[in-house]
Amino acid sequence: MDKYECTACGYVYDPAVGDPDNGIAPGTSFEALPDTWVCPQCGVPKDLFVKVG
């Protein structure tokens, strides 16, 4: 599963880690994140993330 990076702040979403602080279990792919999920570091929406492989 691909990692995605926030173009605003550099935070990297790693599916292996998920985002447990915000209710996202490890193993959740970026595509499977809900539309309401935002960058845990700065709050921008998914649209502002790019794939980093």
């Binding site: 605003a8 309401t36 935002v38 960058c39 700065c42 709050g43 921008v44 929406p45 649209d47 502002l48």
Partner: peptide, 25 residues
């Protein structure tokens, strides 16, 4: 309420609707 300032760029460009600007419900 809190919004990330980078969203302002997307908003001005017309790529992000107003309701998606705020980080939290």
């Amino acid at each position: 309420p809190y919004y990330p300032r980078p969203n302002l760029i997307e908003y001005v460009a017309g790529r992000l609707p107003l309701e998606k600007i705020f980080a939290f419900p």
